[in-house]
Design a protein around this nucleic acid. Structure first.
Lengths: 205, 205
DNA sequence: GTCTATAAGAAGATAGAC
DNA sequence: GTCTATCTTCTTATAGAC
C-alpha cells in the first residue's frame, strides 16, 4: 500500500476511535512512519484527509455486498438464495451478515467515524442515514418483498416488516461498536430475533 | 437559574451540537454572558463541566418518566394504564412517547452529546448503553410482560418481543436527531410500526 | 517525498485587581 | 464573582534544504 493510501487507512483508524478533532496530524504521520510535514505533500490539509475517506467510501461499499455472496444490487438474483431456505439457514445467513458488518475492518471503522461526525453538517448526516438507514431498508425491503411474492413470508406492509427485521440488527450493531464485550450476547439476540421474525411473518404461522 | 447551572445548560447545548472537543470554554462563557476566566470560579476546568452534566443526568431522568404520567419505575402500576387499551390508544401512547423523547430539550441534547462521546471511554459507553438500550428494554420488557400475563399480547419470548417494539423506535429517534426534517416521515413509520406490532403480537390474531 | 526548523494562531488555564 | 492581561502549551501548516 502506498503512502497516500496508508495515510487514509491510519487516519480512518484514529478518527473512528477518537473523533476527527481529537486526532492530530502528528498522530497520523507517526502511525504511517513519516513526519507530519511530509503528510502535506499528499493532502492539502487535515480536512482533505477526512474528505478523501468519505469519497473513498462509495467504491468500497460496492465490494461489501459481493463479499457476502449476495449480489447486493440485484434483489431478484439474491432472492434465489433465499428461495428454498428453512429457518436455520435464515438464522445462519443473518448471523453471517451481522458478523460481517461487525468485524469487517473498513466497514466498522467507517461506521464508527461517521457516528462521531454525523452532526457536523447536513452532508454527513445524509451520508449516515443513507448508508445505515435508507439503503439497508430499501435493499432488504426489495428482498423481503420478493419472498412475500413467493409466499414464503406473509404481510400487507413490507416496509414495516423490513423495519422489524433490520432495526434490531442495527441497534445491536451499535451496541457492539460501543461495547465489543457484548458481542456474544448480541449474537444470541440476533439469532432469537430472526427465529421470532420467521415465526411472526412465516407462511406456516 | 444561577450561573453555575447556566454554564451546564449552555455547555450541554454546545456539546450536543458540536461535540466536546469542538466547543471552547470561550464559546460557553459567551453564551452565559461572562468572560471565559470567570467560568473557572464555578468549575475547575472544561472536563469538570462535562462530568457535571453526566452526573446531573440521573436526577433528571427520574423526572422523565413522571412527565409521561407513567410511573417509570413500577411497571405493575404502569400496566394499569394499558390494561383496557385498544390499538388506537396504543398508537397514541407510542406517538406521545416518541414525541417526548424527540422534543424534550434536555433529553434530546443529552442523547446527542452522548452519541458523540460514546467511544471516549468505557464509562461513557456504559452510560449510553444503559440509558438507551438496557434500561428501555428492561422496563418495557416488564411492561409488555404484564400485558402478556393479562392475555392482551401473546408470545413465548418477551425479551425479543420487546426488542421488536423498541428497536424501530430507537432507530427512528436517531434518524430524527440527525435529520430533524424527517420527523413527519418517522412519526408515520412509528404509527405503522405499532399498528403492525399489535397485529403480530395481539391476542386477536 | 522526506526531513528540520519554525511561523502563526488557537485554546486552556492562571494571576491579580476590582 | 467578574474582569483584563498574560502565560503556556498545543496544533496546524509553511519554508526551504536534501
Amino acid at each position: 500500500m502506498n503512502t497516500k493510501q496508508r495515510i487514509l487507512d491510519e487516519a480512518l483508524t484514529l478518527f473512528s476511535e477518537k473523533g476527527y478533532a481529537n486526532v492530530f496530524v502528528n498522530d497520523i504521520a507517526e502511525r504511517v512512519g513519516i513526519k507530519a510535514p511530509s503528510l502535506y505533500k499528499h493532502y492539502k490539509n487535515k480536512q482533505a484527509i477526512f474528505d478523501a475517506i468519505i469519497d473513498e467510501m462509495s467504491s468500497k461499499f460496492e465490494q461489501q455486498a459481493q463479499a457476502l455472496s449476495i449480489n447486493g444490487t440485484d434483489p431478484a438474483a439474491d432472492a434465489e438464495v433465499y428461495r428454498s431456505m428453512d429457518e436455520d439457514h435464515l438464522i445462519k445467513l443473518g448471523n453471517d451478515l451481522f458478523a460481517y458488518f461487525l468485524h469487517d475492518s473498513y466497514t466498522k471503522r467507517f461506521r464508527k467515524m461517521l457516528t462521531l461526525e454525523q452532526f457536523k453538517d447536513k452532508d454527513l448526516a445524509k451520508v449516515y442515514s443513507e448508508q445505515y438507514f435508507d439503503r439497508p431498508l430499501s435493499y432488504q425491503g426489495m428482498l423481503l418483498g420478493l419472498l412475500v411474492s413467493q409466499g414464503l413470508l406473509v404481510t400487507d406492509n413490507v416496509p414495516i416488516m423490513t423495519l422489524h427485521f433490520y432495526a434490531p440488527i442495527y441497534m445491536l450493531l451499535t451496541v457492539c461498536d460501543r461495547e465489543p464485550d457484548r458481542e456474544k450476547e448480541a449474537l444470541k439476540l440476533i439469532e432469537e430475533h430472526i427465529r421470532q421474525f420467521d415465526k411472526l411473518y412465516g407462511r406456516d404461522y
